[in-house]
Amino acid sequence: MQLIPILTPLKKTGEKSVAKQSYSISLSVNGKLIQADVSADLRLLDYIRYELDLTGAKEVCGEGECGACTIVLDGKTVNSCLILAVEVDGAEITTIEGLSKNGTLNEMQKAFVDHHSVQCGYCIPGMVLSGEQIIKDHEQPLRDTIKEDLSGNICRCTGYQKIVNAIETVANQS
């Protein structure tokens, strides 16, 4: 595999230097309706981060292995690095920025704070959204189920225990 130096400028595939055919899309992001013109090769992750300035979703591996770019697309967690912006015309998207209401964290976010689940924080937006998916998919998930369903999110600091604890707590409340 080709090695990419970490400090090269991130691919801003949407750059307008070359005239590209653009496609108009309309979508809902965190409850807000948005219309936009995007080029076909713009990744959803880049659109969210650079055009919408929602920087909660992160890029790490860029190939769907790590889960740092996780967002919710039509009610399901997905890797936004593996989706093009044109593909989501008509879709409903929630990013980590859409969870809190009027500056108040939601239950999952609070649990992450209470359990000290965050160290460097880079993976956490994805972890929280996957946690939300887990409590949606399973009524009273076993600890092993939580671990299994978190397997698409990689964390290199915490050792996962406190993240699993946070999700377990919310799961047992609901």
């Binding site: 889960g67 996780t70 697309l73 967690t77 890797n79 593996l82 996957s130 369903d149 397997s151 698409g152």
Partner: peptide, 9 residues
């Protein structure tokens, strides 16, 4: 098969 996010797509 992979993880939940990949399985969703």
């Amino acid at each position: 098969f992979a993880g939940v996010q990949i399985r969703h797509r």
